[in-house]
């Protein structure tokens, strides 16, 4: 019943002419299937966009006051601020599309880890500054490509948020890319450290370009994202920076995956237990 209602509402909100059949995500939502169970595709899709940015923004904000130089305390706070701001817009839209009365805060603070839809890449602990910047760069390069495509998609609200966020992401990728170059090219130690970070992070990049039933279903809303083309654009950006950083592109490993379906690393639980602790201790309170 719940799924049916959600499908109806998504249909109402959508600008595109869609049939309810196009929105079905069977067999995944069918009881007794091998799982996972998804909500309405458009909601799922927008949650993925919001959760990536919320979780990464949260990780970045852990650096506040602990950066290697004061200038970087300012810059990292700026990245975190932009990402949490983008997350607020995406989650606000997801809540609206869901139509169950949940706003961005309800989605951020009152969902359990398994209901989060971020890629695994963004939830990994922040590591050293090089790990943080390498992860940031790999995500930023993806984000620029993704937002650039979505900025002209057929869903007007989503396109508007993507266009606004894209301006920020372009600045982010420049900042994180410059750090990757500095640390790769800098000293023997920095080269060794950032190489290790790259090797650790590489297996989490595949998930960014995975296509699944949700991506198929949202095409009915005019949201068409060519994952293979996006990967090619991402690789061009990443390879260029890695080359300038004198770093080698790692050999393709077996890629980790699962965040988009709520199958996370164990880190998500700890991250959320921190993030949600005050809000959950006072349900119904306003702040």
């Amino acid at each position: 019943m719940a799924d049916h209602t959600e499908v109806e509402e998504v249909h109402e909100d959508s600008a595109a002419d869609v049939t309810s059949a196009a929105l079905e995500v069977a067999p995944y939502n069918v009881a007794g299937s091998r799982g996972p169970r998804f909500g309405a595709p458009l909601v799922e899709y927008v949650l993925r966009l919001g959760d990536d940015r919320l979780v990464l923004g949260h990780r970045l904000s852990e650096w506040c006051g602990h950066g290697p130089i004061l200038e970087e305390d300012i810059a990292v706070a700026n990245l975190a601020l932009d990402l949490v701001g983008q997350a607020t817009m995406f989650l606000g839209l997801a809540g609206e599309l869901e139509g169950a009365g949940r706003d961005a805060d309800a989605l951020a603070f009152f969902r359990d880890g398994t209901a989060y839809r971020n890629a695994l890449l963004v939830e990994l602990p922040r590591g050293d500054f090089g790990f943080t910047m390498m992860r940031q760069f790999l995500f930023d390069a993806f984000s620029v490509v993704q937002l650039d495509a979505l900025a002209s998609c057929g869903h007007a609200q989503l396109a508007a948020i993507a266009a606004k966020s894209l301006k920020e992401a372009k600045y982010h990728v420049r900042h994180s890319g410059e750090w990757v170059v500095r640390l790769g090219d800098g000293t023997e130690e920095s080269h060794a450290r950032i190489s290790r970070s790259l090797a650790e992070l590489w297996r989490y990049t595949g998930e960014l370009f995975e296509r699944d039933v949700i991506d198929d279903a949202v095409e009915a809303h005019g949201i068409v994202f060519d994952h293979e083309a996006a990967r090619a654009r991402w690789e061009a950006i990443v390879h260029d920076v890695l080359q300038r950083a004198t770093l080698e592109v790692p050999a393709p490993p077996i890629m980790a995956s699962g965040g988009r379906r709520g199958r996370h690393t164990e880190h998500i639980g700890h991250l959320l237990s921190t993030m949600q602790s005050v809000a959950r201790a006072h349900p119904g309170a306003t702040w």
């Binding site: 904000s61 852990e62 949490v84």
Partner: peptide, 14 residues
């Protein structure tokens, strides 16, 4: 910052 109870408060604290 990591425990701010709303997204708006988190942003203003950052």
């Amino acid at each position: 910052i990591t425990r701010a109870p709303s997204l708006r408060r988190k942003m203003s604290l950052i």
